[in-house]
């Protein structure tokens, strides 16, 4: 069954969130899909604690506080978020678009708003040629079901929180864990590093620093991993049942690149009047869009969200006339926001 909605917002970054607000005050309902398992886009994924100084009328906030405020602002609209799902394909159905996610969920809508930033955050693959053939076998970039590692010998690559947290956690059920990291320092929380060092005394975890992956060996499954010491160039061969790699996230335009939209490198070309792409009813706003003079700033994305929402209204409510209103004085908007007007 298709989920019918006035607009589908792709990307739960700051700009996608604000577009939900602009749609909401016009009485339009939106659903939001994001590939990440959390809301906030770059602000949360890349710099939750860092300060931002150029949000109009907010002298200082952080990535995290900005997102929290946006969530507070759109609360009245009770928006549904579909997290951990990537938007995959689109098809036309008369004046509507049918959008499908990688999990097979389908949306039918007159308006698609792509607020996809620099693309969806995807795990970075092991930097070796040909490793894709082990995807979905015994090479993992995330742990979904830890039971499969029971009694296994596994190799974990990485030196951050994910790598170390899992090394410590899985040491309870694995036979042996090799933790391989490029250098001697770890990026993870100090107490996790100490915990890991403590467990390594028992031999359950073997910490191999200054080593990098060189080759994954095996036919269908990885059987051995060859690693190489970056100081001595000496190789080491590890016999493993599974490999887990935590090389952080990278951003990829992914399936959106296949939708027939006018692209310029990783950006989608739009007109600067309503931020529509070359396809009617598909809009692109925020970091992902490109037009003469575009600035990749949050405030520019907010402006784009407001203008694009107006065109979404015309497509979602072809029989109604768009009326420009101030939030200060429109009782209709205030009703939608669930506020009582105290000024009267």
């Amino acid at each position: 069954m298709n989920i019918k909605t006035d607009a589908l917002v792709i990307g739960a970054g700051p700009v996608g969130l604000f577009s939900v607000f602009e749609l909401g005050i016009m009485g339009l309902k939106a659903h939001v899909v994001d590939n990440l398992d959390k809301i906030g886009g770059q602000c949360i994924e890349l710099y939750p604690d860092k300060p931002i100084y150029d949000i109009p009328a907010l002298p200082k906030c952080t990535g995290e506080s900005l997102i929290n405020n946006l969530l507070e602002q759109i609360k009245p609209f009770k928006t549904e978020f579909h997290l951990g799902e990537r938007v995959q394909s689109i098809n036309k159905n008369n004046n509507n678009w049918v959008v499908e996610t990688n999990l097979g969920k389908k949306f039918e809508t007159p308006n698609i708003i792509i607020a996809g930033g620099v693309g969806s955050f995807e795990p970075r693959k092991i930097p070796l040629e040909g490793v894709e053939k082990f995807d979905n076998t015994n090479l993992f970039y995330a742990v979904r079901n830890k039971e499969i590692f029971k009694n296994q010998s596994i190799c974990i690559f990485g030196g951050g929180d994910s790598a170390l947290d899992w090394a410590v956690d899985l040491s309870n059920i694995c036979k042996k864990i090799y933790l391989v990291h490029r250098r001697d320092d770890f990026r993870a929380a100090q107490h996790t590093v100490s915990q890991m060092n403590e467990i390594s005394k028992t031999g359950k975890i073997e910490v191999l620093t200054s080593f990098q992956p060189k080759e994954l060996i095996g036919e269908k499954l990885i059987e051995k991993v060859r690693i190489t010491n970056s100081n001595s160039n000496e190789d080491k061969l590890l016999k493993v049942d599974s490999v887990l790699a935590f090389f952080g996230l990278k951003m990829e335009l992914g399936p959106i690149a296949e939708w027939g939209l006018n692209l310029d490198k990783k950006n989608i070309k739009v007109n600067a009047e309503n931020f529509e792409t070359n396809e009617k009813g598909i809009f692109a706003i925020g970091d992902i869009c490109l037009y003469p003079g575009k600035l990749k700033l949050i405030l520019s994305g907010f402006h784009e969200a407001a203008l694009c929402a107006k065109s979404c209204f015309n497509r979602a409510r072809p029989d109604e006339k768009y009326v420009f209103r101030f939030t200060t004085s429109s009782s209709e908007i205030q009703k939608r926001l669930g506020v009582k007007n105290d000024n009267k």
Binding site: R124, P127, G158, G159, G160, H181, R182, R183, D185, R187, Q212, F247, G248, K250
Partner: peptide, 10 residues
């Protein structure tokens, strides 16, 4: 240094 961990073949 932390970020370089994620680079291709550092």
């Amino acid at each position: 240094k932390d970020m370089l961990d994620f680079a291709f073949e550092p």
